[in-house]
Design a protein around this nucleic acid. Structure first.
Lengths: 182, 182
DNA sequence: GATTGCATGTAAGAGGTTACATGATTCC
DNA sequence: GGAATCATGTAACCTCTTACATGCAATC
């Protein structure tokens, strides 16, 4: 399906960018909430997009002699990206979740062991949620208007927070379901 | 991390089972809500578990001459599975989501195109939620007791429904955020 | 007798991670 | 001078999907 291809095209379509900065988007920024790729995957894909004439590259010198490569989208690249953007694909497989797998097999552990698991998960997801909410309040004091880059940022951040909320609610429901037996 | 290994060990730990029936679990049953694997991945992994002495195999004849292989867990297999079950692993990367990626790049499409996307997603997730809720009401009229196989089934099904609920709520929030501009 | 489901496998390739490898720049 | 960060790449390996391949059993 080559989704990474379109993730890269989208980022490059926003303006010239280096492979390094693309990798940073995946690792640390908002994008990490719904897509990711290591630099070892990004660089070869950029090479491929170049060969396919979807992007061009400009070598620039930073400081004395350090080279960096600025990638820019081509007309064909933009066209392919927008075409992909409008596709209505079927839902795709449900994401894998190791903790749900452990829950499925919870009959192989004691109630107190599973309860410990649940508390550990609650801690981790609470932490993640807090970090997302921190980003939210720091970046947005009202809903950005549709059509701006910020709208996308806001929408996916909201989605990430809601996903954490739902996961936390599920964990609490599991706790409740254990302790209901009395 | 070899998570598939433990998914297989868990299923086999519940009692002797064939590779075919394991594949069915991943494709159609409750497990599909948090893990999946095609038969082309299951059969080689079973072979590997055999070599590692974590399971044993018994060849049985079905009908006239059709062979099937019943896998049974060994003492070592059970021990390794339970050890894995109790592991408290770090959270792991956020699952990829193509529709969130499209949302992130929504500034490259018109509001009406994105709104169409949202309605299409609402349809698909509503359908999925209805199917999950149908399973829930058909299988459970009250919360199974902790320690039973049914408790795990119930917990992951509940989680799947809550996940769909949350996704639907997010989609509606996105719709609201577009139409708020007036 | 044909279709659907049962049952098991392999091969090629795509997608992704970990580790290896190198060198420049900036900040302390 | 040393550490962290900038910047780019490759190699080996693991995971997973798609396609190929075969044959039996049950049902209509």
């Amino acid at each position: 399906m080559r989704t990474l291809k379109y993730a890269l095209l989208g980022l490059i379509d926003r303006g010239p960018i280096t492979g390094y900065d693309i990798s940073k988007e995946f690792e640390k920024r908002i994008m990490a909430n719904f897509w990711h790729a290591k630099h070892s995957q990004v660089y070869p894909e950029l090479k491929r997009l170049l060969e396919e004439n979807l992007i061009t590259v400009e070598l620039i010198i930073q400081g004395e002699k350090m080279e960096k490569k600025l990638y820019t989208i081509t007309t064909e690249g933009h066209a392919e990206f927008v075409e992909w953007l409008l596709l209505d694909e079927p839902l795709g497989v449900t994401p894998k979740d190791v903790f749900r797998l452990r829950t499925f097999f919870s009959d192989f552990m004691s109630a107190s062991d599973y309860e410990q698991h649940l508390h550990s998960q609650l801690d981790k997801h609470n932490f993640k949620k807090a970090s997302l909410e921190n980003s939210m309040t720091k970046s947005f004091d009202n809903i950005p208007e549709y059509g701006s880059k910020e709208f996308g940022d806001y929408a996916v951040l909201l989605g990430a927070i809601m996903r954490e909320d739902s996961y936390l609610a599920w964990l609490k429901a599991c706790l409740g379901a254990i302790n209901r037996q009395d």
